[in-house]
Nucleic acid binder design. Structure first.
Lengths: 127, 127
DNA sequence: TTATCACTTGGAGTTAGCTCAAAGTCAATA
DNA sequence: TATTGACTTTGAGCTAACTCCAAGTGATAA
């Protein structure tokens, strides 16, 4: 699989994929005799995984650490677990923030709807 | 209220608060005769609102637009509603990404626990 | 065989969102 | 009166995560 095919498949630019490879977020992709990347399934799985984590906002640096631990094999299972638990904690925190904001947005949108329908006139709105 | 008091209250640095003011994310705070900011309740409410929105990841630019519309009064209710609905959509999308990632993290953490307890040996782990 | 086109690299540039530094002002205290 | 310390401004600097550019290479189509 060429980089542009992988790019389409995962909706990441070729530049981003090369950047991830250079930074060690994904394994170094296999190459053809002429030096062109020829992605295999394993590498694709990593790309998919990293994309998922990045979409949730995990940092490059953190993912780099995780991949480095992974490469060292089973002796790093404990450290990897600790790392993932910390990231889970962060995501739960984020989830809470988003939920709080969603509630607030819902309330305001509702109010705006009432104003539009004329149910509420001169609504003394706070931010 | 001085800027350092507000800073403590909302856990934002004075620099950040001044930056928000400069960018128009919050109203210009009232000043004492000698030019020092003396935050009133209204401005504090804005700070709290903006902090909440920023915590959920809404962009400065978007919030700037919202505040600008707000300042123009009731004639912008419709536009503000549209803006908030778009932001809600984005947050719901984010929520989905976070949930997907949380599930994945939970699965992996569980597997790592099983390995640690020796229930799983030589677990052929994919990313 | 020449042209095209997707790929390659290294390194510079960009954007968002702060964050810091320098130099100055003012009110209150020793 | 001198000094302390919190405030002020302007503008530069920083970090994360890409994103773009220039110059070069190699395989295939005309």
């Amino acid at each position: 699989m060429t980089i542009s095919e992988v790019s389409k498949k995962y909706d990441l630019t070729p530049d981003t994929i090369r950047y991830y490879e250079k930074e060690g977020l994904i394994p170094k992709a296999p190459r053809t005799k002429s030096g062109i990347r020829d992605f295999d399934e394993e590498t694709c799985n990593w790309i998919e995984f990293i994309k998922c984590m990045r979409n949730a906002g995990l940092e490059i640096e953190t993912l780099k650490q995780y991949v480095a631990l992974f490469k060292q094999g089973n002796k790093t299972v404990k450290q990897r677990k600790i790392l993932l638990i910390e990231q889970r904690k962060k995501l739960l925190e984020k989830q809470k923030n988003i939920n709080a904001t969603l509630e607030r947005l819902n309330y305001k949108i509702e109010k705006y709807e009432e104003i539009e329908k004329g149910k509420l006139k001169d609504f003394a709105e706070k931010p």
